[in-house]
Every structure is written in C-alpha cells, then in structure tokens.
C-alpha cells in the first residue's frame, strides 16, 4: 500500500510542482499571486483537447500549441490584470486576476462546457497498468513523471543560463536595483506572466489524459499548487518543486492511512499549518524588500 501511495503521490505531486513553480515565479518577480492561474491550467487542458482530438494534430504538436496558447493567456493576464494596475497595490491585482478567472471560466464554458460534459482526453499509451515489481503504474504516470522532470530541468536551465532568466532573478531580488542596472523590468514582468502560464499549460497537457476536463477544474488545482508553494516557500523555486512533491505524497498518505476525506482537505490544512508554524515555508528565504 505504501509503495502505491508514494508512487501516486509523486506523480500528482510532480504536477503540483509545475503549478507551484508558476505561482512562485510570478510571486518572486512581480510580487503578486495570479488568481486566474487555475483557469490557465484548465484552458491548457482544453487547448490540448482541441488540438489533439478536434484538429487531429499529433500529441507533441498539440501539447506544444497548448503550452503556447496558455502562454498567450498569460500575456493577456499581464496586459489586462497587471500592467494597468502597476503601482495600485497587490489587492487591485488580486481582484483583477480573480475577475479574469471568472471571465476565462465563462469563455471555457461557452466553447467547451455546453457542448460536452466532462471531456475525456484518451490515454496516450496503453491504459493497462505496467507491473514494476512491488507496484503497478499506468504508463501515462511514467510519462507524467519523466516529462515533469524534463520541464523542471529545462526551466532551471532557462532561469540560470539565459539572459531573460538572469533578468528575472535580478528583478526578483531587487526591482529598483535591477532597473538601475538597465534590466527592462516591464519586459521581465511580461515574460514572467508568460512563463508562469506556460508552466501551468505544461501541467495541464500532462494531466489531461489522467483526468477529465471541465470548466471548473482549475480552482482546486490552483489551491493545491498554491499550498505546495506555501509549503516549499513562496519565494523559493526549489521549494516549489519540493513542496509540490511533498504535497502529493502527504495527500495520498493522509487519505490512505487516516481518512479519505483528508485528500480534499490536505491542501487547506497545509496552508493553515504552514502560515502558523513556518510562514516562510521549508526552503523559503526572508522576504525581499521591495522598493
């Protein structure tokens, strides 16, 4: 039982890690939490569904287009929910992104919600489980794990080796100093929104064959990704990954060994506990001073 729970927890946890990473990237660079993040995940799933099943593209092109589409939604979020509100305080941005989340849900409901109930994304590989000795896993779970790992490594390389990645780090550390050093801060924000959304799109593309798509699916995923970010440290990229994996495993172990009701509650419990006991999270550093 333990092996199954841990394996399942790591699989879902790797998806939470991708979502948490999107939350953290945005928080670090722009100092905001995007409440339409969950809806970006949902739209990523619908984009993948439409490109793969309706436009009959292959899975890889469909996945790439879905990630690009989600990144475009991130850009829209920047232009609608962030840029006009720079200097208006975090609460204005929170409310704007909250409003945007309802708008995106409405759009999804208009295009996909009324035309089908829960849309099923077919398994990419054989739906029959693969025996790995002490446990059996679905081949799709292995794909999720491998792809999540690849995306996380690619993101780390982007963040540490590219100029934009370094600008993002500079803006996250001290925006004013970065600006003085010639970092185009607004462009960095733009990229941050796009990259954060692309990460949620990638999570959606991987998750789609394991779940069903519906317009309201985003909120709970966002809450779980946010809980993972809080657990790992909302300003720590490594923390997002660790938090995501831990979140997945805790959820499974709690539900498996204590009560299945905990599966639903664990994200909220983790957010509450961490804010009380360890507000900076497991790997979070002190809050950077924003000037």
């Amino acid at each position: 039982m333990l092996a199954y729970l841990v394996a399942s927890g790591i699989t879902t946890g790797s998806l939470y890690a991708l979502i948490a990473l999107g939350v953290v990237v945005l928080y670090k660079a722009a100092g905001v939490v995007n409440f339409s993040h969950g809806e970006q995940i949902m739209l990523g799933g619908y984009f993948a569904y439409s490109f793969y099943l309706l436009a009959h593209l292959g899975y890889v092109p469909a996945a790439l287009l879905a990630v690009m589409g989600t990144a475009a939604i991130g850009l829209l979020t920047f232009y609608v929910g962030f840029r006009p509100l720079i200097g208006q305080g975090m609460m204005s941005v929170l409310l704007a992104t909250l409003g945007l989340s309802f708008l995106l849900k409405g759009i999804a409901r208009y295009f996909w919600g009324g035309a089908g109930d829960y849309l099923a994304f077919p398994p990419l590989l054989s739906p029959q489980p693969v025996d790995l000795g002490i446990i059996a896993v679905l081949p799709q779970q292995l794909v999720v794990l491998a792809a999540s790992g690849l995306i996380l490594v690619s993101f780390a390389l982007f963040f540490n080796l590219t100029r934009m990645g370094k600008w993002m780090q500079a803006a996250a550390g001290n925006i004013k100093a970065a600006r003085l050093l010639g970092v185009p801060v607004e462009r960095v924000f733009l990229w941050t929104f796009a990259v954060g959304a692309a990460l949620s799109g990638a999570a959606a593309v991987l998750m789609a064959p394991l779940t069903l798509l519906y317009p309201d699916m985003g909120f709970l995923l966002f809450v779980k990704g946010f809980a993972a970010a809080v657990l790992g440290g909302i300003n720590s990229l490594r923390g997002a990954v660790v938090g995501g994996l831990l979140m997945g495993v805790i959820e499974q172990l709690g539900a498996g060994y204590i009560h299945t009701g905990l599966q639903e509650l664990s994200a909220f419990l983790i957010i509450m506990l961490m804010l009380i006991v360890m507000p900076r999270g497991l790997l979070g550093g002190p809050e950077a001073r924003r000037v």
């Binding site: 039982m1 399942s8 879902t12 998750m207 394991l210 499974q252 498996g256 299945t260 599966q263 639903e264």
Partner: peptide
C-alpha cells in the same frame, strides 16, 4: 465507507482501502 470528492483526480487511497 469511503469519501471521494467530485473534483478528485486520483482515487488510489480509496481503491487501496477497498482492496485491503
């Protein structure tokens, strides 16, 4: 007597408890 949420993306714990 197990619970499942409508939004559940994974039911491994429920199934393991049923099997056990």
């Amino acid at each position: 007597d197990e619970k499942i949420a409508e939004d559940a993306n994974d039911a491994t714990p429920q199934v393991l408890r049923l099997r056990a």
